[in-house]
Design a binder for these strands. Structure first.
Length: 279
DNA sequence: TTACGTGGTATAGTTACGTCA
DNA sequence: TTTGACGTAACTATACCACGT
């Protein structure tokens, strides 16, 4: 049920406007001549119409100036929006005529509809981005764990290697002394030993270590995955199946940006505001 | 060719009303 | 019956573009 309140007043262009208190003002002839702040403060809401209007006119206002659009009108507007979310003047006029609305109402409906669509799109993009982030975080954690495991393995193998080497050197020294005594020949003090490690524990392959130089992987405290490039290396798959529901350019900004990151993951200029900027 | 005014439409943000739990 | 949250129609401000002069 309508509130039944009526207001009337004048805008800044001194044009009389009439309505039912719902903000309907189809008699406005000027586009920019209405100051919202001023009007919202000054327009008088009337609980009674006796002193202002005839009963017949009041009823007419209630029945003809309904604020809400009917479901049928909304349905047709939605259909039209699906075809194209931009409204050409001809289409606007045609729709208005078909729906029994003012062209201005049709234009406003499209403006609001685009705003709602954009909000929904942003929410959807946020959800997708967050799930991508969660996946990346999870991947990073497991890789970091694996990294720690491998480093521990390297340390352990290095120690084994060093003790083995020490044993070899001492034994070689004794043998060499004996042999030298027997044959009058002195062996080289040490030799480079290549050892294929069969003790590797399922980390995807065997570790070949050039002895005496120590392990090739040195724990410097830095990650093996540069933080600056890491996210780009894991660009989320672009969802091409996302329906095109009539965006400005028919392209999802989220997907586009990830595709961009995928193709240019080493370009520093892509590290600016990137996808977040909607222009 | 350039500058300027005008009209239409875009987005972003706001206001006020209708509806519903 | 009242109230707060939410959706929506209508609005303002501002920017951009096309077009005529």
């Amino acid at each position: 049920m309508e509130s039944g309140r009526l207001f009337f007043g004048c805008n800044s262009s001194n044009m009389l406007f009439l309505g039912n208190g719902n903000g309907d003002n189809y008699f406005r002839g000027t586009r920019m001549g209405f100051n919202m702040e001023e009007s919202s403060k000054k327009r008088p809401f009337l609980s009674s119409i006796d002193d202002m209007l005839e009963e017949e006119y009041y009823d007419e206002q209630l029945t003809e100036k309904k604020r809400r659009l009917s479901p049928e009108q909304v349905h047709m507007l939605e259909q039209s929006f699906e075809e194209d979310n931009k409204l050409e003047p001809e289409r606007k006029t045609e729709l208005a005529k078909k729906l029994g609305l003012q062209p201005r109402q049709v234009a406003v409906w499209f403006q609001n509809r685009r705003a709602r669509w954009k909000t929904k799109t942003l929410e959807r993009d946020y959800d997708r981005l967050k799930s991508s982030y969660d996946i990346l975080t999870s991947d990073f954690d497991s890789i970091a764990k694996e990294n720690e495991k491998l480093k521990a393995e390297v340390v352990s193998l290095t120690e084994k290697l060093q003790s083995k080497e020490a044993a070899n050197i001492s034994r070689t020294g004794e043998d060499a002394d004996t042999a030298a005594e027997e044959a009058g020949h002195t062996p080289p003090p040490s030799a480079t030993v290549k050892i294929e490690d069969h003790l590797s524990t399922g980390s995807g392959g065997s570790a070949v270590v050039d002895d005496l130089d120590g392990p090739q992987l040195v724990d410097s405290g830095d990650s093996y995955f540069p933080a600056t490039d890491y996210p780009h290396e894991y660009a989320a798959p672009v969802d091409q199946s996302e329906e095109d529901d009539g965006s400005d350019d028919g392209r999802n900004n989220f997907s586009y940006q990830f595709a961009t990151a995928d193709h240019h993951h080493h370009h520093e200029e892509d590290d600016s505001l990137g996808w977040w900027v909607w222009s």
